[in-house]
Amino acid sequence: MNSLPLVSICIPTFNGGKYLQETLNSIQEQTYSNIEVIVSDDKSMDKTLDIIEKFKPQSKFPVFLYHHKPKGIGANWNNCIKKANGEFIKFLFQDDVMEENCIEEMISIYDENPAVGLIASKRSFIIEQNAVGENTNNWIKKYEDLQSGLTQKKNNVLILDKLVFKRNDFRKPPFNKIGEPSAVLFRKDIVNKIGYFRTDLRQILDYEFWYRILKQQPILIINKPLVKFRIHQDQTTNENNKRHINDYNIYDKILFKEYLNLLGEEDKLRLKHKYSLVSKIIRKLKFLFNVKMKVK
Rank of each mutant, 00 (worst) to 15 (best):
V97S: 00
C80R: 00
F93V: 06
S121P: 11
G72Q: 02
I140F: 13
W77M: 11
E104D: 08
H67R: 15
E128D: 09
D95N: 12
A75G: 03
Q94H: 08
F88R: 10
H68Y: 08
L118M: 08
P70F: 10
I89S: 03
E112A: 06
Y110H: 12
N113V: 04
Y143V: 07
N78F: 13
A75M: 02
F61K: 15
F88P: 08
N138R: 12
S124G: 11
N135C: 10
E99D: 04
R123T: 15
P114D: 06
P62Y: 10
T136D: 14
N113W: 05
K71I: 00
K90A: 07
G117R: 02
K82C: 04
V63M: 08
E100Y: 10
D111F: 09
P114V: 05
I126G: 06
E104S: 14
K60D: 14
A131W: 08
F88E: 11
D95F: 11
A84W: 03
G117T: 03
L118Y: 01
G86Y: 00
W139M: 10
M98Y: 14
A84N: 02
I103F: 00
A131M: 05
Y110K: 12
N130V: 01
T136R: 15
P70S: 13
A115R: 11
L92T: 09
